[in-house]
């Protein structure tokens, strides 16, 4: 079992981290110019012809950078349901997508197109009115669509479980990025902030919970990477691996942010500090697609059969 990244994946990660540090909010066209919207689109259709493991790098980095773009909605969720010509549009940066599966829809402020599930198919929704709602996590707003009619048929609905597995895994990876950054901020602060004449990180009441946070995030990263690998290789364990990853990573990211806010003290409670935005993204990830508890109920059914 080899978990190591390829040199190309390492390069992609370093490049993405550097770019997003300088441009945390790239436009869709900029993301396309970087080649990120077409990572898994075949080269013949203008993409890079790579796979989910490369996309995984970008989900994690965009979580860390709190990127506000319909990347997860488009690439993790809708892309595999699109016919080749529409995938090529995504790769070129001409279109981005979101999927309406329930009353609340993500990224309606930025996605250029909306897909929805109707009967045994996934369709494009055309002519609908959009309303973007005020949300806790401003980097992935929710909204509602009304009216409109079926446009082009995109694919059969049998792809939905696959889309859900990708969605859960991408959210897990984003959570890893969010949590890792919250922990780094806490470690930096604990090493610099002096109280009682010493850096607060010397106190075990501060340091040990950070070690626990490290542990939870590190375990989560293994689960998320395993799920990503399952998706990339069509491994039949992908669905349960994704549920396991999301159930753990979302909780770990929320806990990491809460710990980091606590370690920061008053400054961590202010609007100016980035922590509340990381925290709200983590809470958004936790709430979206399926909560950790709900996913564990699915895992329990997988392990133990139906309950009473």
């Amino acid at each position: 079992m080899d978990f190591s990244s390829t040199p190309e994946q390492e390069e992609l990660r370093a490049g993405a981290r550097g770019y997003l540090a300088d441009h945390p909010q790239p436009s869709w066209a900029e993301l396309a110019a970087l080649g990120w919207t077409g990572v898994s689109v075949p080269e013949a259709d203008g993409g890079a012809g790579l796979g989910f493991l490369e996309e995984a790098v970008l989900f994690e980095e965009m979580g860390r950078a709190l990127t506000h773009a319909p990347y997860w909605s488009t690439v993790a969720v809708v892309l595999p349901a699109l016919p080749a010509d529409l995938r090529a549009e995504v790769a070129r940066g001409e279109a981005s997508w979101t999927l309406a599966t329930g009353p609340l829809v993500t990224d309606l402020d930025s996605a250029t197109r909306v897909a929805y599930v109707g009967g045994d198919s996934i369709w494009e929704l055309v002519g609908a009115d959009r309303e973007v709602l005020q949300t806790n996590d401003m980097t992935r707003p929710l909204g509602v669509v009304s009216g409109g009619e079926a446009g082009r048929r995109l694919s059969g609905s049998e792809v939905l479980p696959r889309l859900r597995t990708r969605s859960l895994t991408a959210l897990s990876l984003e959570a890893c990025g969010v949590g890792a950054r919250a922990l780094e901020l806490a470690v930096d602060h604990a090493g610099q902030r002096l109280q009682f004449g010493k850096p607060i990180g010397t106190y075990q009441a501060v340091a040990h919970p950070l070690a626990t946070t490290l542990l939870a995030l590190d375990l989560g990263r293994s689960l998320a990477l395993f799920a990503a690998w399952c998706i990339a290789t069509d491994d039949p364990r992908a669905a349960i691996a994704a549920a396991a990853a999301k159930s753990h990573c979302a909780e770990a990211a929320v806990a990491a942010c809460e710990r980091s806010i606590q370690v920061h003290g008053g400054i961590g409670f202010t609007w100016e500090h980035v922590l509340h935005r990381l925290y709200k993204r983590a809470l958004g990830i936790q709430s979206w697609e399926a909560s950790s508890e709900r996913l564990r109920a699915e895992i329990a059914e997988h392990l133990l059969g139906r309950g009473i």
Partner: peptide
């Protein structure tokens, strides 16, 4: 059942 599922997830995580 929730607790068992949680421990199974943590064990998977430990292995990987």
């Amino acid at each position: 059942r929730d607790a068992i599922a949680r421990e199974w997830v943590e064990l998977e995580a430990l292995r990987y």
